[in-house]
Design a protein around this nucleic acid. Structure first.
Lengths: 369, 369
DNA sequence: GTCCGTACTGAGAACCTTCTCACCCGTTAA
DNA sequence: TTAACGGGTGAGAAGGTTCTCAGTACGGAC
């Protein structure tokens, strides 16, 4: 509803200046709040701007200032509650710092990730938070990183890019603790529900640093490590490798339970897999926790609504996102003040996930011993 | 890693042109893919671009072309699974159309919303999908709408802006059906768990169009309408008005159950409230569904994991987002082709939520009759 | 030999803001 | 009286791209 200039679009600063009877420089000083301007011209310009419905064009401003006040966020799926919460955490921090969020999902598709990275780069985000799809993501990110763009890895490490900041969870340790909890309860035949991968044999090597792996592998490593420390030989048959999908996890877990009646405990490595595994246990007819114990991953609200209430590993989703955002903003700030790309050491943050003991874990049934 | 020009930043098209020994115009034609260029210069430019690590600057491009290929998405909280799914739906459609997403949360705070809208406007998004915070949002949006920016309302109507497209759910109808289901099962003392508002008495008026209201009020209207049609006088004591928060919903529902032992059924108007109410029922010691029936809202994955499995109203979250995005993109396209702001009639889309009958609803206990 | 169309090229304006620089003018210090 | 200074101002470049326009070279038609 603004009375338009000669172009059809919203009024620019030159039209405001013309209407106010001052130069564009003065109008810019008033509206951009950066130079000096007399009270008189200030008033004239502000009135004109008000009258025309002027809004500064952020594109032009960003172009000249070299910063967009926007950070890119690339996750696999915002629909997944884990990432939804993490993004929320990011949003809060970033917003407080005056930045906006450009969001993209990859569905773990390398091409989609490639495209997302490229778009972020072209749109000149001031920083990037990414949950990389896999090891190959390193190559896709290298150009950006070398170009000096602040990047923070979220939830997943990238050993090929050690100079990049990362915010992770102590996956291996908390998985180990969860399985350890089951072992202390007397369980020996403990199965794990995991996202499909080919890492099993490699992870058996105790010298492999589980926390250098992607979360699902890191948790699998923690599981294996706990068994080995307790002198229990890991049984490949007890490692459920399901596609990342609730229904698939349910089917895979059901098959496991059918084929391995000796299993008395189940450790799930992820929120999606937890719900699938629980569904399978419920349908199997085995009593939980009397006949089979279950440890879930991610303390979602519903884990206290099911019966028995679920023992889970609680990840601080939101804090994870918030920490990543804080780290990123710190880098962006440092870069602005310092000028060049900071050559500080990379910050590798590791938040603590905790085991929350509830009713779904109980001593192993005596008959099995 | 690119050999830089005289400025410190990433190489621009002029540096590529210089390196290739052609004019910026020709380099632009090759890299932007818009004009004609000989095979020879094409090759020279592409090699130079490759060598320097050139990436086009989207800001400059957007500035001159007048479009950012970005759409704004404003919701109250991406952390809420409803919006997380909706945003996912938006993202998929929008991405397929070659657009990106600028995301903002408002937490139902008018100021945050105002700020988000302003930022979207300044960043020159090509369109906006917003779940408005409340009736006052209309005023905040008016400038944008009048300025010709395509806007689609998500999940919440704005009667003051009838010319704006909206994508909603048939809240009143499906709530009515849910309560009707309870009535047919013989329930008479049916309580509703709702987000706090002052709408109760107004909604009693049958002439009020429930679907012009925000979802929580619309569902409350459906509840009241179902009761009235069945000749049951709505009892204000049975309307739980909780702050929008799971713990608060749980406390409020617990209080209701304590004070009104005659209540035999509960209708929840939202996913958060459903989980709170279920927790309250579980702690109350009343058997579900034998002593008390429960209808939840939103078919989250866990509603089949609890016992009894929940009867719920299933909303198509993702489709809601997808439909909004499709509508928005259509507007953006039309605007580009038609030139001016299209004066078509507003599209008011209403997706169908459905009642999914499961085990948490059963005939009312005989003793109560 | 002239004319025209086609394929290609480069100069330079445009998009909208920020920011440097030079300038004006009144005031104060020397 | 002059010099220095300060607030205030406008002209114009910069930022990186797209796009118009004029212009070159060349082939073929007359």
């Amino acid at each position: 509803m603004h009375s338009k200039g000669q172009t059809g679009g919203p009024p620019s600063i030159v039209e405001v200046a013309r209407a106010a009877g001052v130069s564009t420089a003065t109008a810019g000083r008033v509206l951009g709040g950066y130079g000096q301007a007399s009270a008189a011209s200030r008033k004239k310009v502000e009135e004109a701007a008000q009258r025309l419905g002027y809004r500064p064009n952020g594109l032009a401003r960003s172009l000249i200032q070299g910063s967009t006040e926007t950070i890119g966020v690339i996750v696999t799926d915002v629909g997944n509650s884990f990432f939804a919460q993490a993004v929320r955490g990011i949003a809060d921090v970033v917003r407080a710092g005056g930045f906006e969020i450009l969001l993209a999902n990859t569905d773990s598709d390398p091409e989609a990730e490639q495209r997302a990275i490229q778009v972020m780069w072209e749109k000149r985000v001031d920083g990037l938070i990414i949950a990389p799809e896999g090891p190959d993501s390193a190559g896709r990110l290298r150009t950006l990183v070398d170009g000096g763009l602040p990047v923070v890895l979220l939830d997943r490490p990238l050993p090929a890019l050690p100079q990049v900041d990362q915010v992770l969870v102590n996956n291996t340790a908390c998985a180990r603790r969860a399985v350890d909890h089951l072992i202390r309860l007397g369980h020996r035949r403990i199965a794990v529900v995991s996202e499909a991968s080919r890492d099993f044999s490699r992870l058996l090597d105790p010298s492999v640093d589980g926390d250098g792996e992607r979360p699902s592998a890191a948790r699998l490593a923690g599981y294996l490590s706990a068994l080995q420390r307790a002198g229990i030989r890991p049984d490949p048959d007890l490692v459920v490798q399901a596609p990342y999908d609730r229904a698939a996890a349910e089917r895979a877990t059901a098959r496991l339970l059918r084929r391995n009646p000796s299993v008395t405990a189940l450790f799930c490595t992820d929120n999606i897999l937890t719900s699938g595994a629980l569904a399978a246990v419920q349908r199997s007819g085995r009593a939980c926790p009397e006949e089979i114990s279950l440890v879930g991953f991610d303390d979602q609200e519903w884990t206290t609504l099911v019966r028995p209430q679920l023992t889970v590993v609680r990840q601080p989703h939101r804090e994870l996102g918030a920490a990543a955002a804080k780290q990123l903003l710190a880098r962006v700030q440092a870069q602005r003040e310092g000028g060049g790309p900071a050559d500080d050491e990379a910050v590798h943050l590791r938040l603590q996930a905790k085991l929350v003991r509830r009713a779904s874990t109980a001593p192993a049934p005596a008959s099995g011993a």
